[in-house]
Simulated scan of single mutants.
Amino acid sequence: MLPAIFPFLKASPAVTALIGAGTDPITDPVRVYRHGSAKQNVVKPYVTWSVPAGDAQITFEGADADTFRVQVDCWSDDGQEIDVLAGAVRDALEPHAHLVAYLADERDPETKRYRISFAFDFIEPR
């Protein structure tokens, strides 16, 4: 039902070169996590995503599609790497969704971790 964020990112060689290729779930996982599911000491860089909003497109003929606003957050400890990761993630998702907002470009004052966030709108036919 929700957009296929993980498969889209896993299919991108530019993304997996940065966040793991998934050749082994223990030693080389693809580090894409639904919001709140990344482990405390996850290897950086990584990507998280959440669905803060959605909507059903309903016509007189019935339910046609669902739209989802998906927030995608890129995380890194390196200021240059975060830019590369964010660009790769954007390029991997734009063929499947509409990029509608840049939400954050910041550095956490406590962890010193960089974050770049996007909002994408996905339309999922029903």
Rank of each mutant, 00 (worst) to 15 (best):
V43N: 15
Y102T: 08
S12Q: 02
T48R: 05
F120K: 03
T59K: 07
D91L: 08
E81V: 09
T27F: 04
D55S: 11
Y114F: 11
G22H: 03
I123H: 14
D77G: 14
A56H: 06
Q71Y: 14
E124V: 12
T67R: 05
V15C: 00
Y33A: 01
D108N: 07
W75M: 03
A56S: 06
E94D: 14
E106Q: 13
R113I: 13
D73P: 02
G22K: 09
V84K: 06
I5V: 10
R34I: 13
A86T: 03
I123T: 14
R31C: 00
S50N: 04
P95K: 10
D73N: 09
A21M: 11
P3D: 04
L2N: 12
R107N: 08
S37W: 10
A4W: 04
V42F: 06
C74A: 01
R113H: 15
H35N: 10
V15G: 00
T27S: 08
A11L: 05
L99Y: 09
G87W: 04
P109M: 13
Y46H: 02
R115L: 10
F120P: 02
P109T: 15
A56K: 04
S37Q: 07
V89L: 01
I123W: 13
V70M: 05
K10G: 11
P52R: 05
V30H: 02
R113F: 15
L9W: 00
A11Q: 04
I58M: 07
G87A: 10
C74Q: 00
V43Y: 09
I82K: 00
H96A: 06
D91R: 07
A65V: 02
D121Q: 12
H98R: 15
A119P: 11
V100P: 05
F118V: 04
V43I: 12
D24V: 04
A56G: 11
A86S: 07
A97D: 02
T27H: 12
R34S: 15
K112Q: 12
R31P: 00
I58A: 06
C74H: 00
R34V: 13
F120Y: 09
V42T: 08
A104D: 12
A119Y: 12
D108M: 05
S50W: 01
P13D: 10
K39T: 14
I82L: 05
